[in-house]
Amino acid sequence: MSTVSVLAPLPGTVLDLQEVPDPVFAQAMVGPGLAIEPPRDAQRITVTAPITGTVVKAMPHAFVIMHESGNAVLVHVGIDTVHLKGEGFTVSVAKGDMLQAGDPVVECDVAFIRSRDLSACCPVVVLDAQADQLTDLHASGASVTSGDVLFRVL
């Protein structure tokens, strides 16, 4: 069994899922992981693929990539951003695309999201996984840049 490194898809401050202002993520209902709060002064940021794999879902506010191991990682760009109906987002991938970790997936206007009184917090979770499958979790409160190892999946 191989270990999959999940990379930070954007720069910012690491948060434990319990700190995410959404009960579905905070209670790890969709899976375990961490979240990243973009820098306060962020304007537009490019959100990248956290793992190498196939895009299984690509929406403006969220995407899922499936690794060959079967692990699928969801990146949700902001909280309640589905209500923006794509405004403030530019998606550069489609379902079925093969990506390498670090490839650009979506550009988002963080300043716009925040101007709509929405959280720009970005949960990064492993779907259908158990918390004990995650290891080497980045510490909450630590700063990350795109491409840093956020955690690993066993």
Rank of each mutant, 00 (worst) to 15 (best):
L134R: 02
A101F: 04
P39M: 02
C122H: 10
C121H: 03
S69Q: 04
E68V: 15
D148Y: 05
V105G: 02
A101H: 06
D117H: 09
R44W: 11
D80A: 07
G96N: 13
D80G: 09
Q130T: 13
L137D: 00
A129K: 07
S119E: 10
F112H: 09
F63G: 13
H61F: 14
G88A: 08
L34R: 15
F112L: 09
M66R: 15
T81Y: 14
P50H: 04
P104V: 01
D136A: 08
V125T: 15
S115E: 07
F89Y: 04
V75N: 03
V77I: 15
D128P: 05
L99Q: 00
T135M: 12
G53F: 04
T135V: 05
M59L: 14
F112W: 00
V47K: 03
C108L: 11
M59D: 03
Q130H: 10
F112D: 04
S143P: 01
Q100D: 12
D136Q: 08
M59P: 00
L34T: 05
L137S: 09
E68R: 15
L127V: 07
R114Q: 15
N71K: 09
G96F: 11
L99G: 02
I45D: 01
A49P: 00
I113A: 13
H83R: 11
M66S: 14
M98I: 14
P104F: 01
E107V: 07
T90A: 14
V106I: 15
N71G: 01
G147K: 10
R44Y: 04
A142T: 05
Q130M: 02
